[in-house]
Each structure stands twice: as C-alpha cells, then as structure tokens.
Amino acid sequence: MKKVLQKAYLALILIFLYAPILTLMVLSFNASKSRAKWGGFTLRWYQEMFDSSTIMDALYNSLSIALFAAIIATLIGVLACIGIQAMGKGPRAICMTLNNIPILNAEIVTGLSLMICFGAFGISLGYGTILVSHVAFCIPYVILSVMPRLKTTSSAAYEAAMDLGAPPIQAFFRVVLPDLMPGILSGFLLAFTMSLDDFVISYFTRGRGINTLSTLVYTQVRRGIVPTMYALSTVIFLAVLLFLLAQNFLPQQLEKLSRRHHARRAHE
C-alpha cells in the first residue's frame, strides 16, 4: 500500500513536470495556430523555424557565447584554483567569499549592475558585453567543481614526479591535470549550460539588435502566438536531453580512464 502511494506520488510530480513540455511538443506538429484545436499533423513550423534567420542567428549567438564563455571560464577557473590553493588561509577565505557573490546574488541585480557599469564606461552593449558577463557568472561554478578535486589530489604525487626529474610544468600536465580532469569537465559543462540557459543577464547586457535564444523567446512570446516557438522548444528539449545524458555519463567514463591511466602508470 505504502509502495503504491509512493509510486503514485512520484508519477504525479513527473506528470506535473513533463506535461507542459510534452504539450509544447505536441503543439509543434499542430497545423492549426489555435492552442485548443488540433488541425492535423504538419512539419510547417519546423520548416519556418529553420528558414527564419532571426531564430538561427539567435541560436548561433547562444551556442557560440556558451562555448566561448565556458572555455574562458574554465581556463581562468582552473588557474585560479591552483593559485587559491597556494594561498594562506586568509586570502583563500576572501577568494571563496568573492566566489559566492555571483552565485548568491539576484540575477536581476547582477544584470543591471553590469548594464550600469558598461554604460558608465561608454562601452556599447552587444555580443562582447554578453560574453564578458557570462564569463563572470560562469567562473564561480567552474571553481566550485574543480576546487574539491584539487583538495583531494595529494601533493605527494606531484612532488614525486619532480623528484623523479620531471620539470614542474611536465609534472603538472602528466600528474595533476589528469586527476583534475573530471572536475574540469563537469565545471566546463556546468558553465556551458548556465550560459545557454541564462536570460536575465543577457537581457540587460545585450543592447539592441542582438538576440540569444532566451531573449528571442521573450520578445516573441510577448508578441503573441508563435508556433515556431513550439518547434524550437521541442528541438531544445531533445538537445538538452542528449546533452545531459552525455554530461552524466561522460565524467564517469573519464574517471574510469583516469583510473586506468594511473593503474597503468603504477604498473610500469
């Protein structure tokens, strides 16, 4: 009885979570523009979506910004972790507090403060300002992913490598980096998804004439019924599903690889 109730509860919440998304998917194939009537099956909205240069431009902007922001944030974040690790207790605590600010701050405040700042320095808003802002809110997530791994990586292996004659750089790339890899990868993916999903900060730092997917959806939805948005939702949901499956299973694979790598090294 209790098991049945539990299953029923899980099912109800799953319906609550997925029904809206499934509705959008069904409507994306609806020939009628009405939300309440089924007018037959069509792929017209997908055709219109792929033909729309506005949507494709926004898609390109979102993906390229997410990719660049994630790469830059990962580079800066990994370097920062090594630097912070070498610091004394006080400066390290300051850095970690600093790190929490963008995570805990309300998005509207982060976005508006950046907009005010760019305005005050006469920097015109556009692709560059979105990218710079995305890097700023992505770095903390990279640090949160990499820092715990760096703490558990013993410095003994690194020092042993140097005792055996490896220059520090080589010791880093051959010993420390492989150990950090799962953390770096999950930090990178987290940064990528955070950037892709962001609306508020992009909205305030984008200026006119440039859209990301989120800002495009916002303007389209405010204008009224746009069936191409249903098609877009379906494509995005499927992409997110694939992406997350990869994100969940890739780090495990990497972990295995890195362990095997170590085991082989120990063997030799």
């Binding site: 809206p20 959008l24 609306f199 959806v217 939805v221 939702s233 949901f237 997110v240 992406f243």
Partner: peptide, 11 residues
C-alpha cells in the same frame, strides 16, 4: 535544464 523562458511559456 530546459530553457527557463520556454518552461514559463509552456504554462
């Protein structure tokens, strides 16, 4: 992880 705007739009 589904786009926040699209989730709201769905409702």
């Amino acid at each position: 992880w589904m786009n926040f705007l699209l989730r709201t739009f769905a409702w």
